[in-house]
């Protein structure tokens, strides 16, 4: 049960200190630490990353959602194809999905050219891949549950009964 609570808090803000997590959950700090270590060891928690609003930076960051259709044969399954694609550092997310296409792949690069080249030269030639449809991200409004707008000011009075 404490595992679930700690996980929820880390998902909310991975930079909460173990002391703060302990205060919020009523657990001991050492219990929190052990729980986090166990979650990491078991591979439940795979890493910690910052949620970045690229529009706030001068550097361009190009991201694309790519739909992939594949054909399978006796020797090659979804996992085999996925394993091969996931190795490319340009691929930031890869999921098998239901619906009109098979894989939902997210790709990142420094320019449209770089991303396009990656898809045409590295992804499309994979023999099992029959079709790719690339959607470049134009504006992002929400990432990992965090809204990227300017937010709403706290308009509450500083004192109220």
């Amino acid at each position: 049960m404490s595992e679930r609570e700690v996980l929820e808090l880390l998902r909310e803000n991975a930079r909460y200190s173990t002391a703060d997590i302990a205060r919020m959950t009523g657990l001991d700090e050492s219990e929190v630490e052990t729980t986090i270590e166990e979650l990491e060891a078991a591979g439940v928690v795979r890493g910690y990353q910052a949620v970045v609003d690229w529009d706030k930076l001068e550097d361009e960051r190009v991201r694309a959602e790519v739909e992939l259709n594949v054909t399978l044969d006796r020797e090659t399954g979804y996992d085999d194809i996925a394993e091969r694609l996931a190795r490319f550092p340009q691929v930031t997310a890869l999921r098998l999905v239901s619906g009109d296409y098979d894989f939902d792949m997210e790709v990142e690069g420094d320019s449209i050219r770089e991303v396009s080249q990656f898809i045409s030269e590295k992804v499309a030639p994979v023999p099992e891949i029959t079709q790719t449809v690339t959607h470049y991200v134009m504006t992002s409004y929400k990432e990992h549950g965090i809204e990227l707008g300017d937010g709403e000011d706290d308009e509450r009075l500083s004192f109220s009964p």
Partner: peptide, 28 residues
């Protein structure tokens, strides 16, 4: 008059006030 009034005026003088004096949710 309300006992909170006076504090309100002091709070207005600073722009870095964090309020734990609010009787309503911070959620929308």
């Amino acid at each position: 008059p309300s006992g909170i009034r006076r504090f309100f005026e002091i709070a207005e003088e600073r722009d870095d006030v964090i309020s734990l004096g609010v009787g309503e949710p911070d959620f929308s």
